[in-house]
Design a protein around this nucleic acid. Structure first.
Lengths: 187, 187
DNA sequence: CATCGTAGAGAACGTTCGTTCTCAATGCAA
DNA sequence: TTGCATTGAGAACGAACGTTCTCTACGATG
């Protein structure tokens, strides 16, 4: 088995388990068993659990970025591309495995005791803000629109996670449409 | 020392510590020392750590409800009362101790492994939704407005927590104003 | 003063976790 | 076949946790 293939399997398995149960609730032995690798291989690939956590965060960031952008790219006009953010959320919320934003969750769980986790979560959210700002800019909207839409997206994620329903995606989408139109008219 | 006074001190101390470090990162011994009570008294008041966690959640719910309502009551017209939600958030975000919504955080940390925590977080958010719906109703707004404003409030909390700034409160407030006015006109 | 119940401090216990170590089995080279 | 390096399975270790237990000191009561 390829060495990078082992890495990927570990990270993918850890991502699933951490998402399903929380990071601290998943021990190295459970991860070892689920990933089907020996402890020796696990520690040959990663020096510690915290390094696995960071690798999982990177993995999540890539998945999120690629998935979101793929949905946005399918939309046509700039206004629809902004709204597509919430279509992506809607699809995500409907998945059985959805348990909220992994960055919000890891920040809540470890942000206070792990500066690395806190910093990575911050950077991830910052990159999302910039992404929305770029889309909003392409739509010709004033600069205050992007943070508003980003806040809606964040709120939809936590609301959907805790409520256990996907309603928030549609509600946020409708609110976003109002905010976009108001911003474009005012501009 | 009064017995209920001990309880209150334990819960208040646990609330602070859990907020600052996360629930799982705070052991019973640290809580014991910080609260200045003996382990015996601690376990005389609460049968287990999880019962303390639930008491902390109740304490947080009361603090949140009372603080929010106090700010809302100071506002005059129904429209301003809806916006006062975000003024309350702004004041909260500026506190040094702010580290995000305690219910979102506890849900992220323990929701997957503790049905009680997940259920309490859900009920808390549900009660907030109902509160906003009542204010929106008093403003004569259509029923779709309240979930939109609640999502904004949730998003502002996570955004402010992770970014480490209080900007989100003002941004959410401005978005709320747009949504409120649009809803009132459309109605 | 003597006695007894109580409470505090923290030792102790059993478990779990992250991490390391042991050892036997395997595959390969000569 | 023999010897050697590598690997997997899991035992072992030290620390930390939640919880319980022990022992000592104290204060109230007769």
């Amino acid at each position: 088995m390829d060495i990078s293939e082992v890495r990927e399997r570990i990270v993918a398995t850890a991502d699933e388990l951490y998402n399903a149960k929380g990071i601290q609730a998943v021990g190295m032995d459970e991860l070892r068993t689920a990933a089907g690798v020996s402890l020796k291989k696990l520690y040959a690939e990663f020096p510690s659990k915290s390094s696995i956590v960071m690798a999982v965060l990177e993995h999540r960031h890539e998945s999120w970025t690629e998935g979101l952008d793929a949905t946005v790219q399918q939309a046509g006009a700039p206004r629809e591309r902004l709204l597509a953010i919430f279509d992506y959320l809607a699809g995500w919320f409907c998945q059985d495995s959805f348990r909220g934003c992994g960055f919000i969750n890891s920040f809540a769980e470890l942000g206070a005791i792990s500066p690395d986790v806190a910093e990575y979560a911050r950077k991830h959210k910052e990159s999302f803000q910039e992404y929305v700002a770029r889309l909003a800019g392409e739509a010709g909207a004033p600069s205050y629109l992007a943070p508003q839409l980003a806040i809606l997206a964040e709120g939809a994620q936590t609301t959907a996670a805790i409520a256990g329903t996907s309603d928030a995606a549609g509600q946020a989408r409708q609110a976003a449409a109002v905010l976009i139109d108001a911003a474009l008219i005012a501009d």
